[in-house]
Design a protein around this nucleic acid. Structure first.
Lengths: 146, 146
DNA sequence: TTGCTTTCCGACTACCAGAGTCGGATATTT
DNA sequence: AAATATCCGACTCTGGTAGTCGGAAAGCAA
């Protein structure tokens, strides 16, 4: 169980845009260079973020990307879902063990475990915003450790 | 983010053994057939569970596997770690984005997010035992939804 | 002692998603 | 025009997941 680079890079890039502000758009290539990430790949991810409505873009020279909304209104969950489609994927829904076993009518005491796990993961990730992540590491840590 | 079949099958198989009791060992082949899982694969997983000390085995005819400890003393986290090595894997530790960025000295406001996520996942999974999962689905659901 | 059942274990294959690249089309500024 | 960017599909490469296979060793039963 882990998050992919889509989610990780997505967060890095979103946070980068949040810090840069919304005055002038930031070119993908410039962002990739500063963050030390593969440029072409970053562009793919920015495309996903744009399609999800998290960032906006300006084409042509002097163009680039900027955050579509205020950092405080964008949660980590938003970014991960934009980049990776889902946060935690419950096998009962997608990669079913078997159609019989995972059928809704069939009782399964394991299912509630995955469901609850998904709920808790989503709860945490939805509670953290890009605004929060603009703080120092130690402050973030304190903030989210309830 | 998802659990692999190692973890899923591992749980199914452990739970199966828990329900069967510890009077007589259960052959892997028999278990696989009843649960509708690939026999050879189940055997691989049982091997992992045994190496982790969760199940014990008896070789030869009339042999098989049985739970090494009381179901109430084995958590879902135990089973997942036995089958999959880890529950949630923090990229900062294993698949580092880059050695510079993920170096301990380098400040990173994203890191606390993954760490806290790991903590919460582990907390939940450690709080659920095989004994709990021997209850009905609805009861399990109620039990773990705090 | 000869089978039969079963665990044990390494090695081997198939497949797919993750990670990243590439080539070119389109839009905008200078 | 030329330069800078987004846009986007398609393409490759790799590693891990999922599962299979072939045999060696151990114990039971006759």
């Amino acid at each position: 169980m882990r998050v992919t680079t889509w989610a990780e890079y997505g967060l890095i890039v979103s946070l980068h845009l949040a810090k840069r502000g919304r005055d002038a758009p930031t070119p993908a290539r410039d962002m990739a260079k500063r963050e030390g990430l593969p440029a072409d790949y970053v562009e793919q991810i920015l495309l996903k973020l744009r399609r999800a409505g998290l960032v906006s873009s300006v084409r042509g020279a002097k163009g680039g990307y900027y955050l579509a909304r205020d950092p405080d209104t964008i949660s980590v969950k938003d970014v991960i879902e934009a980049a990776e489609n889902r946060t935690f994927e419950v096998n009962c829904d997608v990669h079913k063990v078997s159609s019989v076993r995972c059928h809704d009518g069939n009782p399964c005491s394991i299912r509630p475990v995955w469901r609850e796990l998904q709920r808790r993961i989503d709860d945490l990730l939805a509670s953290i915003t890009l605004g929060d992540l603009m703080l120092e590491e130690a402050e973030v840590q304190e903030l989210i450790a309830v």
